[in-house]
Amino acid sequence: MRWGVVTFPGSNDDAQALRVVERVLGDEAIALWHKDVDLRGADCVILPGGFSYGDYLRCGAMAKFSPIMAAVVAHARRGGLVLGICNGFQILCEAGLLPGALVRNRSLSFVCDLVIARIETTATPFTASCGRGSLLTLPIKHGEGCYVADETTLAELEARDQVVFRYADAAGRVGPEANPNGSLGNIAGVCSAERNVLGLMPHPEYATERLVGGEDGLAVFRSVQSWLRDGGRSRGDEPRVQAP
């Protein structure tokens, strides 16, 4: 399959995403520039982490106006897969492809650490091969990863099974002790109502090799691979996976 990775000015994790696609997954990687206007056949588009436009004004606020984002939005509207990691998640929220917003960590400090992300739903192309409730050890590294949304939106997210990851402890318990940034409901990642767009703060791409960061993040990429291989359609049609 083909993965597109968008480089915005200030993207830092684009090279890592490209490396994982090519060297770990053995798939085709397409480097997309923010001034590009089409996705060159990418099945899944990754908006990587970093500090697009320096995070000035608000994280992701300016990246959403990049020329490439029109193509990303169109791709998502057609049911194409979009994976936003960290700054990519912030961009997807700013662009309105995902509900809610990410604000400064409650500690007010940047935090780089390993967290445990509990898989809340397998009804997405990104978690379809995982077990519900299974725990992934993944790194986080962000200053503004506190997920917020108004109560109505939060209730909708829960009702429609759109919360994909929550921060948990080693026993899988969700609580304030396991929450690294103050996110409401310990939310670490959410998907769109159509389930083809995922945003998350933890970095699965930095947990794909035993030597550096472990391999738990592979679960996300492998899910996408097998979902597409099994006939999940990436472009044009309604996604196969529906909310329960």
Binding site: N12, F110, C112, Y206
Partner: peptide
């Protein structure tokens, strides 16, 4: 913890 120790992979 306040430093990105991982970027670059």
């Amino acid at each position: 913890r306040q430093y990105d120790q991982l970027v670059g992979g």
